[in-house]
């Protein structure tokens, strides 16, 4: 079980990092989501993996640590809210710049300063 679990976390994290490094906002958002899945599973495993264990010491042979579960729950809620926000921000980026490149319009990267000087503020 440990090996399969570790491989899943590794795959999720690696895919997440690969996607976060892409240049379009959509893959980046998906990458952040995958990364947070990997992190949540990782956090869950920090209390050690146990099947059929109860979160009360002494009730069963194997003890399931309840604290990582509480941590994961908090992390899921926060991660979900942040993903929602970054989706909205990505949409706004596309609307403002008519392009879903993470740096806005490609043209803008080189002419950022000149453009600002032309238009003033």
């Amino acid at each position: 079980m440990e090996l399969a679990y570790a491989l899943i976390i590794g795959t999720l994290t690696a895919s997440g990092i690969y996607l976060v490094l892409r240049a379009r906002t959509f893959p980046v958002v998906v990458g952040l989501t995958l990364l947070s899945y990997g992190v949540n599973l990782f956090l869950f495993a920090t209390g050690r993996l146990a099947t059929g264990g109860q979160p009360i010491i002494g009730s069963t042979e194997q003890y399931a640590d309840p604290l990582p579960q509480a941590l994961v729950l908090t992390a899921i809620v926060i991660g979900f809210a942040m993903t929602a926000f970054v989706v909205v921000l990505a949409l706004r980026n596309q609307a403002d710049n008519e392009d879903d490149h993470v740096d806005g319009r490609k043209r803008e990267i080189h002419t950022d300063i000149e453009e600002k000087e032309e238009s003033g503020r």
């Binding site: 990364l35 947070s36 992190v39 990782f42 956090l43 942040m82 926000f85 970054v86 980026n93 403002d96």
Partner: peptide, 21 residues
């Protein structure tokens, strides 16, 4: 402000993942 904000948010989300790890 859109593009700098996007960078800021994505960076900090990655930072949060590292924090949890």
């Amino acid at each position: 402000r859109t593009v700098p904000s996007l960078h800021y948010v994505v960076l900090n989300l990655v930072g949060s993942s590292l924090f949890l790890i």
